[in-house]
């Protein structure tokens, strides 16, 4: 029962933030919504007990990719968009409350996990490391071709993106 609720909740977050990426005019909001979406997907992975993938998702997507996006967005001149940032007392109160809540959630979770560290959950840790080991073994034996082909895909995407950016018309036509 709880699984169902949490699944639908996470789904809702993912879908809502994905929609927000497309519909919201402010680019920074879009980028952050995408990051939230990615975090939601990581949460899904957690619930499926694919801890390694969840970690990778968080680190790579929400961490590296989104940070990259935000950095690029920062490089644009956003005076016009800055005005879209909400002002006023109510929104300030909301922002402060939310950030305090999130911070306390993270602090609480961290302290809880640290307190559990010494209590003999080495089996769980071993489980996780074993599954990571199996995963990597699979990646390099059974699915090695797929893995390498993805490498080609990545190279191609990089070259393609740069080529597009430097193209005569760029991404915008005359």
């Amino acid at each position: 029962m709880t699984e169902a609720i949490s699944f639908y909740l996470i789904q809702f977050i993912i879908l809502a933030s994905a929609l927000a990426v497309v519909l919201v005019p402010n680019p920074i909001y879009s980028a952050i919504s995408l990051a939230v979406s990615m975090t939601g997907i990581a949460a899904l992975f957690f619930s499926l007990e694919a801890y390694f993938i969840a970690g990778v998702q968080l680190v790579v997507y929400a961490g590296a990719v989104m940070v990259l996006f935000v950095m690029v967005v920062m490089l644009f001149d956003l005076k016009k968009e800055k005005r879209a940032f909400s002002r006023g007392t109510l929104s300030r109160v909301l922002k402060t409350t939310l950030s305090v809540l999130i911070f306390s959630m993270i602090a609480g979770a961290l302290s809880m996990s640290f307190s559990e560290l010494g209590s003999g959950d080495s089996i769980a840790k071993e489980d996780i490391t074993r599954s990571i080991k199996e995963l990597s073994a699979l990646l390099y034996t059974k699915y090695v071709f797929a893995f390498e082909a993805l490498a080609i895909l990545l190279v191609m995407v990089i070259v393609g993106a740069i080529a597009l950016a430097k193209a005569k018309g760029g991404t915008h036509a005359k």
Binding site: Y143, F145, A146, A149, L150, I152, L153, M156, V157, G160, A161, A163, L164, A167, K168, G169, T171, H172, A173, K174
Partner: peptide
């Protein structure tokens, strides 16, 4: 294998997306 197929499909398609956009300046190409 279905996964390998998907990778091949994406490789084929994404290159083509870029290729379609690459050379022309007209709105119609973009």
């Amino acid at each position: 294998d279905l996964i390998v197929t998907f990778i091949g499909l994406e490789l084929m398609s994404i290159s083509l997306y870029v290729l379609v956009a690459l050379s022309k300046e007209q709105v119609i190409a973009k």
